[in-house]
């Protein structure tokens, strides 16, 4: 059985159609990467699966349960399966690093601050960060370190599924590769199902088992990562090779 199965997903904001019948299946333990240009609805897709965005029609099955019908406690239980790495990190800037990492741990039973702090430091170690940054504020960290702290926070509750929203955006190529390696290691070591959305092809090639391409609100191609250069799909070819010419037209004013 697929861990996540999305069928016929539609979502529009006012007159703008964002998702126009998305079908996507992700097996347990698989690392799926959805590629696509800016504004193609990648973020809306993952927020729909999390239940943060209400979809207009279609079904989203997670472990065979339809997310679109969930409410209240059941929805909270559904969300507890997920961890998410947000694009900008989305660290709580009013809390020190260790409180950020331990944020979700504090609610599962009343643990002492010292225990939470120790757990936070363990998770920071998982992403290659030392205990010395535990008491800093997120604003005192570099972009790459913020991403890693956010990653530690996302995996702290040992979720079954982790979503990565543009994990390498805004990082230098070396730090981007560090993050890619971390994601690959975490997926393997923690046996999680991963869904990454990105437009960084180097990142996609490194972390994907399978790749799907989202364009104009639908999945136009879906296949194993090794076949991405022989997809036989013009959209994928144009995107993967980063060409301005092709079936995908950018909204640029004529000169």
């Amino acid at each position: 059985m697929n861990k996540i199965e999305v069928t016929g997903l539609h979502k529009r904001f006012g007159p703008k159609i964002v998702l126009n019948g998305v079908d996507l299946a992700i097996a347990a333990g698989e690392s799926m990467v959805v590629i696509g240009g800016s504004g193609t609805g990648k973020s809306v897709l993952i927020k729909s699966i999390l239940g943060l965005v209400k979809v207009d029609s279609g079904t989203i099955l997670v472990d065979g349960e339809d997310v679109t019908r969930l409410k209240g406690r059941a929805l909270a239980a559904h969300r507890a399966k997920f961890g998410m790495l947000f694009q900008g990190g989305a660290l709580f800037d009013s809390l020190p690093v260790w409180r950020n990492v331990a944020f979700a741990l504090g609610r599962t039973g009343h643990k002492k601050a010292a225990e939470l702090r120790a757990a936070a430091i363990d998770n920071l170690a998982q992403v290659g960060l030392g205990a010395d940054i535990a008491d800093l504020r997120p604003s005192e960290l570099s972009g790459g370190m913020q991403k890693r702290v956010a990653l530690a926070r996302a995996i702290a509750v040992r979720p079954e599924i982790v979503f990565f929203d543009e994990p390498t955006t805004g990082l230098d190529p070396i730090m981007a590769d560090v993050i890619n390696n971390l994601i690959v290691d975490l997926v393997r070591d923690l046996k999680i199902t991963a869904l990454t959305i990105t437009h960084d092809m180097a990142s996609a090639r490194k972390i994907a088992d399978r790749v799907a391409m989202l364009y104009a609100g639908t999945i136009v191609w879906d296949g194993p990562c090794q076949r991405i250069d022989q997809s036989g799909n013009d959209y994928v070819d144009q995107f993967v090779n980063g060409r301005a010419e092709g079936p995908i037209r950018m909204q640029v004013k004529p000169a």
């Binding site: 709580f92 800037d93 609610r107 599962t108």
Partner: peptide
């Protein structure tokens, strides 16, 4: 600011309403 930097969405994914 928490909304536009996705901190509120992040909170929801961290088991906190």
């Amino acid at each position: 600011t928490m909304r536009v930097t996705e901190q509120i969405d992040a909170m929801t994914t961290l088991r906190t309403d």
